[in-house]
Amino acid sequence: MPEFLNLLSFGNGGWGYELFKGALLTLTLALVTFPFGIGFGFLLALAQRSRSKVTRNASLAFTWVFKGLPELLTLFLVFYGVQIGMRSLFAAIAPGIIIEIPAFLAGVVALGVVNASYASEVWLGAFTTVPHGQYAAAAALGLPRHLTMRLVVFPQLLRVALPGIGNLWLVLLKDTSLVSVISLAELMRMTQAAAGTTKQYFLFYITAFMIYLLISAVSGEVFAYLERRSARGLEREA
């Protein structure tokens, strides 16, 4: 068996199982973070459309901060900063309690708030495409605000927002590699371990490249299908 196949195998001396576990953790992290980021982003968009000036300004400040910070710095602030703050708080009110933030949770929160900041812009752009008459028609039918949003507005928002949401998923997928710096054994960290141990840097980094490319290609097809499905029944322009 060629040496590179042996190194990528799942048997003794191979790193296939480690790379598979790393890729699985990368996908898990992205799949857990994505709904949180998109959902929180939707709430931020609603807040920016609120009649309350305080609510609007709070949402704008949140998105401004986390769009301006590097994702890596946000990750460090959540994993180290929040952990230190919580330990100081509990040391004052409940001495002896040790607080540890799991790396996975820190990754979800840090990447999620950054994703939410950008998602809010996608949702806000989608809101501008819904005619005001849709709200007026729903009110004329006696629909309460929550049903108007769920049954009338949101399906239209989702159709328009899907391309942007798909792009945010791909960005998030790549950003998951950042959590390797807080010792979470995702794909990039396992690739680095394999490359460092075997000194076969090109082999393992090109393998990681192919894995990311495969996931991105499949993701692109999934979102393309969702876009086609959401556009069913719409008259296509010639």
Rank of each mutant, 00 (worst) to 15 (best):
A138Y: 00
A217C: 14
N12F: 15
Y201C: 09
L162K: 06
A116D: 04
E237R: 09
Y205S: 00
A94I: 08
A94H: 09
F4C: 07
Q83E: 12
P144H: 06
L157F: 00
P155L: 04
L29Y: 08
A47L: 08
R159P: 03
L172R: 06
A139V: 05
P2V: 12
K21D: 06
A208T: 03
T128Q: 15
R229I: 06
L19I: 11
T26I: 08
F209V: 04
Q192I: 08
T198R: 10
F62H: 08
F34V: 07
V109L: 12
L69N: 05
L43P: 01
F62Q: 00
W123F: 15
F202R: 14
Y225R: 13
F127T: 05
P35T: 01
V82H: 02
L158Q: 01
S120G: 02
G22S: 13
P155G: 02
H132Q: 10
L19P: 07
S219N: 09
G68I: 10
L173G: 00
H132C: 05
S59M: 08
G85S: 14
T63F: 00
A92V: 13
V160R: 01
Y135C: 06
G220V: 09
I97M: 11
L141H: 03
E18D: 15
V82D: 02
G14S: 01
K174E: 05
P163C: 05
L184Y: 01
